[in-house]
C-alpha cells in the first residue's frame, strides 16, 4: 500500500512538473488574464467617467489593441486575475488529488471551500435580502442614505415580526436559552407545512392522476395509432403496478403479487434511467473543469477562439513584440 502511494505521488509530481514546465515554455503568457478599463458614471463633465471599473476580456482583444497601439492602456494585463487563474488551477488540482487518497492538500482546499461558501451565503443573504427587505423596510431613510440611494419606501413596522423571529433564531448560537430558537424554527416548519400541504396535493397528487387519464386507444388523423396506444397503456398500467407495490396493507400474493412484481420492474427501469442520467451529469461537470485547465490555464486548446488573432498581430506576437 505504501509503495503504491509512493508510486502515485511520484506520478503526481511528474505530472505537476510537466504541467508547470509546459506552462513556462513557449510563447509565454499562459494562464494570463486581461482586463479592459470601463468608464463609469459618464456625463458631460466627466467624458472619461467619474471613475473606472474593469471587465475581463479575451487575450486576443489585448493583442489586437497592442498591435494597433502599443502605448494603449485601455486593455491591459491583469496581475490579480492572472494570479486568480493560477490559484483556481491549483485549487482544481488540489481537489482532484483526493483521487490518489486523502491528503493534506485536499483537506486544505476543502477547509477553504467550507469557509468561503458559508461566508458567501451570508454576504448574499445580507446584501440581497436583509438590507432591502428587512432593514430597508424598517428604516428606509437610513438604508437609503447608506447603501441603497434608489430606495423609495415608507417604514413598515410589520417587519418587526421577522426581525424578532430572526433575533430569536440567532439566539441558538448563545450558550444559554437556546430553546427560544424553537419559536422561529416552529414558524419555518409551519410555513413549510402550510405551503406544501395544498401544493403537493394539487400538483403532485391530483394533477398526476389527471395527467394519467389518457386514451388507451389513440386515434389520429391516419386512424389507429398503435405505438402511441402501447405507450399510453404501458404508462398507465406501469404506474398502477408501482402503486400496487407501494401498497403494503395487503399481502403481495397471487394477482396482487404479480402486479407488484411488475411494479418493481418498472421502478428498476426508472432507477436505471436515473443512474444513466446521473452519470451523464457528473461527466459534464468533470468536462468543464478539464476545459478550464486546458483552455484558461494551459492554453492547450482554444475552443472559443479567445486567442485567435489576425495574421499581422500573430506575426508581432511570434516576434516577441507583444
Amino acid at each position: 500500500m505504501q509503495r503504491s502511494t509512493m508510486l502515485w505521488t511520484l506520478v503526481m509530481v511528474v505530472a505537476a512538473a510537466f504541467l508547470i514546465g509546459r506552462t513556462l515554455q513557449g510563447e509565454g503568457g499562459r494562464g494570463s488574464a486581461y482586463v479592459r478599463v470601463v468608464p463609469r458614471a459618464v456625463d458631460e463633465d466627466h467624458p472619461e467617467g467619474r471613475w473606472q471599473g474593469v471587465e475581463r476580456v479575451d487575450p486576443a482583444e489585448y493583442w489586437r489593441a497592442q498591435a494597433a497601439d502599443p502605448a494603449q492602456t485601455a486593455v491591459r494585463w491583469s496581475p490579480a486575475n492572472t494570479v486568480g487563474i493560477w490559484l483556481a488551477a491549483l485549487f482544481t488540482l488540489a481537489v482532484l488529488s483526493f483521487l490518489a487518497g486523502d491528503n493534506p492538500v485536499y483537506k486544505v482546499a476543502e477547509s477553504i471551500l467550507v469557509g468561503v461558501s458559508a461566508a458567501y451565503w451570508m454576504v448574499v443573504g445580507f446584501w440581497e435580502v436583509l438590507v432591502p427587505n428587512l432593514l430597508g423596510k424598517l428604516m428606509p431613510g437610513v438604508i437609503q442614505a447608506w447603501a441603497l440611494p434608489g430606495l423609495e419606501a415608507e417604514p413598515d413596522l410589520s417587519y418587526l415580526v421577522p426581525l424578532t423571529l430572526g433575533v430569536l433564531l440567532l439566539w441558538r448560537l448563545a450558550p444559554r436559552g437556546a430553546w427560544i430558537g424553537r419559536w422561529p424554527m416552529a414558524f419555518i416548519i409551519g410555513v413549510f407545512c402550510g405551503l406544501r400541504l395544498v401544493t403537493y396535493i394539487h400538483a403532485d397528487f391530483l394533477s398526476q392522476i389527471r395527467n394519467s387519464i389518457v386514451p388507451l386507444v389513440v386515434m389520429n388523423e391516419r386512424g389507429f395509432a398503435f405505438w402511441d396506444s402501447v405507450r399510453n397503456v404501458l404508462t398507465v398500467f406501469g404506474m398502477l403496478a408501482c402503486l400496487v407495490y407501494f401498497f403494503f396493507s395487503i399481502e403481495h400474493r397471487g394477482a396482487v403479487g404479480k402486479c407488484a412484481r411488475a411494479g418493481i420492474w418498472v421502478l428498476m427501469i426508472t432507477f436505471g434511467a436515473a443512474f444513466g442520467y446521473t452519470v451523464m451529469g457528473r461527466i459534464a461537470l468533470l468536462a468543464i473543469r478539464l476545459e478550464f485547465l486546458f483552455d484558461d490555464w494551459l492554453w492547450l486548446i482554444d475552443p472559443n477562439n479567445r486567442r485567435v488573432v489576425d495574421g499581422a498581430t500573430a506575426l508581432l506576437q511570434s516576434a516577441g513584440i507583444l
Binding site: 452519470v279 451523464m280 461527466i283 459534464a284 468533470l286 468536462a287 475552443p303 472559443n304 477562439n305
Partner: peptide, 19 residues
C-alpha cells in the same frame, strides 16, 4: 456561429467516450 455557442455540442465528445 461564434464558437462559444457550440459549448454543449462540443461537450458531447467527452460524454460519448466516458459513457
Amino acid at each position: 456561429p461564434p464558437a462559444r455557442y457550440a459549448e454543449a455540442r462540443r461537450r458531447m465528445g467527452p460524454q460519448l467516450v466516458a459513457h
